[in-house]
Simulated scan of single mutants.
Amino acid sequence: MSVSLQKGQKISLDKEAGGALTRITMGLGWDAIKTKGLFGFGSKSESVDLDASCILFDENNKPVDYVWFRQLKSKDGSILHTGDNRTGEGDGDDEQINVDLSQVPANVKSLVFTVNSFTGQNFSQVENAYCRIINAADKKEVARYDLSVQGAHTAQVMAKLYRHGGEWKMHAIGENGSGRTFEDLMPRITPHL
Rank of each mutant, 00 (worst) to 15 (best):
P63S: 13
V64Q: 08
D65P: 11
Y66M: 13
V67D: 01
V67N: 03
F69Q: 08
F69I: 11
R70P: 02
R70F: 13
R70H: 14
L72S: 02
L72Y: 03
K75W: 01
K75M: 13
K75I: 13
D76M: 03
I79V: 15
I79P: 00
H81W: 06
H81R: 12
G83Y: 03
D84A: 10
D84W: 03
D84I: 07
D84E: 06
D84V: 09
N85W: 04
R86A: 09
R86H: 09
T87R: 07
G88V: 07
G90W: 05
D91V: 07
D93V: 02
D94P: 07
D94L: 08
E95R: 06
E95C: 11
E95F: 10
Q96C: 12
Q96D: 11
Q96K: 12
L101R: 00
L101V: 02
Q103S: 13
Q103H: 10
V104R: 01
V104H: 01
V104A: 05
P105M: 06
P105A: 06
N107D: 14
K109Y: 07
S110R: 08
F113A: 03
F113D: 00
F113N: 00
F113T: 02
T114S: 07
V115L: 04
N116Y: 02
S117Q: 04
F118D: 10
F118R: 11
F118E: 12
T119M: 07
T119F: 02
G120A: 06
G120H: 06
G120Q: 04
N122D: 13
S124A: 14
A129W: 02
Y130P: 00
C131E: 05
R132E: 10
I134A: 02
N135H: 08
A136P: 03
A136H: 07
A137N: 13
A137E: 15
E141F: 05
A143H: 03
A143E: 01
R144K: 14
Y145N: 14
D146E: 15
D146G: 12
S148M: 11
V149W: 10
Q150T: 15
G151W: 05
H153P: 03
T154C: 03
V157G: 08
M158G: 10
A159W: 09
A159F: 12
A159V: 14
K160R: 15
